[in-house]
Computed example of a mutant assay.
Amino acid sequence: MNLEAHFADRPVFVTGADGFVGSHLTERLVDYDTDVHVFVRATSSGELRNIRHLQDDITVHRGDLRDKHSVTEALKVLKGHSDAIIFHLAAQAHVGESWERPYETVDTNINGTLNLLQGIVDLDLDIYKFDTAGTSEEYGNIDYQMEDKHEYDEDGRVLLSERSPVNPTSVYATSKLAADFLTMNYHDAYGVPGVTTRMFNNYGPRQNPRYITGTIITQALERDIVELGNLTPKRDMCFVEDGVRGHLHVAVEGNPGEEYVYGYGENISMLDWAELLLEVGNEEDYWDEPEIVQRNDRYRPGDSDVEELLVGYEKLHEQTGWEPEVSWREGARRTIEWYAQNTDTWMGRVDWR
């Protein structure tokens, strides 16, 4: 499918546009000559940090997802546009911080989604698609009472798809699952053309350095040791540009009322991921073999860590042709390059200093 042709001049509304995935999505939409409207939280500093270079090509609406009035006022721009698409990516998206800021996480992720959906109903908007960005964390660990409900690959690994049981193990995951269900509730009750997209472990340029990939790279760039927590969990690491294409395909070709999951289609332990990143950085002369050190205080609370995530993205592939295009090594190289060239954007945000 020629995505560019489907988005040219189309009105699109993006929440979380200045975030990690949101900024890459916004950048792609601008490249497609889309009529881009972004909803960003007005702050005293750091506003439009990731999309400042796009500000002449987008319309910025300032407000707060938790404030119903500002959300509804911003959505008015979509009145009379039946081809409009809303990408809802705004969230408190860090698992660890969801334990430190549980009320903000719930308020932003659940009430923020509710404000958007109710705003669409209150304004009687007739839009083409509403894409709520979910997360692979919603699956959590296997509830062994539900073992027979899961699918398995030829190696006996749990293969997570749209049909898999969910079992969230963090405040963040629970709040995102609630947002997914709200999206489906409003589809069933009011006909809001909602879809949910569960991306698996996006990484890449501009990601908050407190996530695992940024934590590894930023430490390796600055010192001889890389301090990490639990290294046994396995994750399905998907480069952000592939993740963005997934959102775009679902928005155009996905069926309202349905869910779509996607990722790289293979997983890797966090120890092996760290070693892969460090190996690529060594090859590119960014550092000289830093040592990996485990620290107990970097583990998630109690039994809340998710042991293994692996996606089966057949549904999205069959319906749209989507598949990942960026290999782990290429994604690692491009991500390391960005962190190395943009030290001033992340140095004050790391959690290891």
Rank of each mutant, 00 (worst) to 15 (best):
D236R: 04
D236W: 07
D236V: 06
D236F: 06
C238S: 09
C238K: 01
C238F: 12
C238P: 00
C238T: 15
F239G: 04
F239A: 00
V240L: 04
V240K: 09
E241V: 11
E241P: 02
D242I: 07
D242T: 12
D242N: 10
R245H: 15
R245I: 12
R245N: 15
G246C: 06
G246M: 11
G246Q: 09
G246I: 09
H247D: 10
H249C: 12
H249W: 14
V250F: 07
V250G: 05
V250S: 12
A251T: 14
A251V: 09
E253F: 15
G254V: 04
G254R: 10
N255W: 04
N255K: 14
N255G: 01
G257D: 05
G257R: 03
G257Q: 04
E259I: 11
Y260S: 07
Y260P: 05
Y260C: 04
V261M: 06
V261E: 03
V261R: 11
V261Y: 05
Y262D: 03
Y262W: 15
G263R: 05
G263F: 04
G263P: 02
Y264W: 14
Y264E: 11
G265R: 07
N267P: 07
S269H: 07
S269N: 08
L271V: 01
D272S: 07
W273C: 00
W273F: 14
W273Q: 03
E275T: 08
E275P: 04
L276D: 10
L276C: 08
L276P: 03
L277M: 11
L277N: 06
